[in-house]
Amino acid sequence: MTLINRRTFLQSTLAGSVLAVAASAGLLTPTRVLAAAWPAGAFEAKTIDDALKSLYGTTTTVDSKAITITAPPQAENSAVVPITVSTTLPNVESIAILVAGNPNPLVANATLFGAAGFFSARMKMGKTSDVKVIVKAGGKLHSASQQIKVTVGGCGG
């Protein structure tokens, strides 16, 4: 048990530091770093701002009406909340889904290479909170959010 924990801890810290070195040296652009390895720092961040900083290096986003979030206003089962994101923005580079009320807000980050601005998944939610979607298009961060109500507790509750 302790061995496994120690190993995963070492792996994640090592991967994180290598990424940080590569990024600070300017060897890789942020998107390439993301595509190359799982961004552990962003997924372990405790707030949306920290996750955004880790992913994109900034927390500045522009509200956009061109992003459509399709999700139930009230989740029947908080362990399986379907969400679909679509956008009409051109040149979509990535789509990230963040849930403000989760212990680790970042749910998923999809990097798209020429695919249409569309991403769907099913996620777990701990409690009623806002769901924020960040779409990176044309080098800018666009955001949209929607509240999803959760009546019963998250995992198996």
Binding site: F43, A110, A115, F118, F119, A121
Partner: peptide, 22 residues
């Protein structure tokens, strides 16, 4: 590659992921 999705623990059991290509 058309899409690379980095997923976290908040994705539901038996994940269903959808993308679209034009």
């Amino acid at each position: 590659d058309v899409a690379v999705a980095d997923l976290g623990v908040a994705i539901s059991k038996d994940p269903l992921i959808g993308v679209s290509v034009a």
